[in-house]
Structures are given as C-alpha cells and as structure tokens.
Amino acid sequence: MTDWHDIGALSDIPQLGSRIVKSAQGDIAVFRAADDAVFALSDSCPHRGGPLSQGIVHGHRVTCPLHNWVLELESGAAIAPDVGCARKYPVRVDGGRVLLQLVSVTDSSSV
C-alpha cells in the first residue's frame, strides 16, 4: 500500500540543501531548491553510488560530490554527456509540511 508520509516542515530542509529519509526502499534525499520547490531522489548517484544528499544544489539540479555528475531533480536523469537516472519519489508540500509518497518510512534525520 502506498501512502503519503509527513517527513517534517519545509523549513527543516535548508534552501539549496537536503534531508535524508530512511525507508524500506533505501535512503532518499529530499531536496529544497532556492525557489522552495521540493524534490526526492534515491540518495545514490547512478554513476558510482555517490551520496546525492551531500551534493551541491543549483537551480533544479544537483551535482554529485564524488565525480561531478549533474542530475535533474525533477526526473533524476543525468545531464549529457553522462547517462543514467536516480530513482525519483513523489513529494509535495501541503500547509508548510513536506509529504513523501512511499510504501513505508522507517526513520528520518536531517543532513
């Protein structure tokens, strides 16, 4: 069963930053752009598994801290010439709260 899980206030995620949510699917990086848009991707770069949550957020993209791959936050797709995709998760903001759609969430913590 899929459900929306409240993972905290939008203000808990720094602008141009992220928060990690631990789930049955693995670690999920929830990003907040400068314009307060929120995105959720698997916290693993498709290149070599680098922690995307530790990357640099710019616009609606994140740069992996290991090998500088750039991924689109809306889709998880790598920017050419790189090829690959991080899994994306549905996320939304409702009344200042960030909601993540998952099968199950086990724990969450700030980065």
Rank of each mutant, 00 (worst) to 15 (best):
V30E: 08
L71P: 04
L41W: 07
V70L: 01
A33C: 12
L73T: 12
M1R: 13
I79R: 08
V57E: 05
I7R: 10
S23G: 02
I79K: 08
M1N: 14
S44C: 04
R48A: 12
V38M: 07
I20F: 00
Q25L: 00
S23C: 03
S44I: 00
L16A: 14
D27E: 15
H60E: 15
W4N: 05
S23D: 04
A78L: 14
K22A: 02
A33P: 02
A80P: 14
V62D: 03
D27G: 05
D12P: 05
C64H: 05
R48W: 06
S11M: 02
V38T: 08
E74S: 15
S11Q: 11
I13P: 10
V21H: 04
V30C: 02
L66M: 13
A29T: 01
C64P: 04
P46G: 06
G55Q: 07
A9C: 12
G17S: 08
A9E: 15
S75G: 07
V57A: 09
S75V: 00
G49V: 03
C45N: 07
P65F: 03
A77S: 13
A77Y: 06
G8D: 02
P14M: 02
R32E: 10
A37D: 14
P65D: 07
A9D: 15
S44N: 01
Q54L: 11
R48G: 13
S44M: 09
A24S: 14
T63F: 00
A34R: 15
S23P: 00
I20D: 02
S53V: 05
A29M: 08
H67Q: 09
I13T: 06
P46M: 02
V30I: 10
L52Y: 09
E72K: 15
T2D: 12
L71M: 11
A40W: 08
Q15N: 13
E74L: 01
S18L: 03
C64W: 03
G59S: 10
Q25H: 10
F39Q: 07
V62P: 03
S18T: 09
D43H: 09
V62L: 10
E72R: 14
K22I: 08
T63Q: 13
P81C: 04
L66S: 09
A24Q: 14
T63W: 00
V57Y: 04
N68T: 11
S42G: 14
L10I: 08
R48K: 13
S23I: 01
D6K: 11
Q54I: 00
G59Y: 11
S42K: 13
H5D: 01
W69A: 10
E72W: 12
S11C: 01
G17E: 06
A24R: 11
I28E: 04
D6C: 07
P51L: 09
S18C: 10
K22Y: 11
H5N: 06
R19N: 01
Q54W: 00
Q54D: 13
F31N: 03
Q25T: 11
T2H: 11
D35N: 11
A37Q: 15
S44V: 05
A80G: 11
D6N: 15
V38A: 10
H47S: 03
F39T: 02
D27K: 10
T2F: 10
H60M: 07
M1F: 10
